[in-house]
């Protein structure tokens, strides 16, 4: 999370809302450990990463939907091994569980 604080502060001081996605759990091979974080500003700017680049695009869409109030803060799962998983997969074949929420705490 440390590496994204400067961007978050910059967006906050410009009056922008921010959502944060954090890896909370992984199954099988996962490129990033729990705690890896990515921030998305309300106009779609991105800081940090939560995988090797496999799922970041989908995370931005989810984060923006949550910021617009179209979806609740929640755990989103990416990976092929889960029936309910999103269509976006990880090249390593693992599964990553992300918690995405507006940074309003």
């Amino acid at each position: 999370m440390r590496e994204i604080l400067d961007d978050i502060d910059r967006w906050h001081s410009a009056g922008k809302r921010v959502a944060v996605a954090r890896v909370v759990d992984t199954n099988g091979s996962g490129p990033r450990e729990p705690g890896a974080a990515m921030a998305v500003s309300e106009d779609g700017e991105v800081a940090g990463s939560v995988s090797g680049g496999c799922v970041e695009g989908a995370v931005v869409s989810e984060a923006l939907a949550i910021l617009r109030g179209e979806a609740e803060s929640r755990i989103v799962t990416f990976g092929y091994s889960d029936d309910e998983a999103f269509a976006v997969g990880l090249t390593c074949g693992g599964t990553v569980h992300l918690f995405i929420q507006p940074l309003e705490w």
Partner: peptide, 18 residues
């Protein structure tokens, strides 16, 4: 930023999510 040890706890599922 100050390298101080601490834990951040977040409810990620169930009552009080977020």
């Amino acid at each position: 930023r100050d390298d101080q040890p601490m834990s951040l706890l977040t409810v990620v599922r169930g009552p009080g999510t977020g």
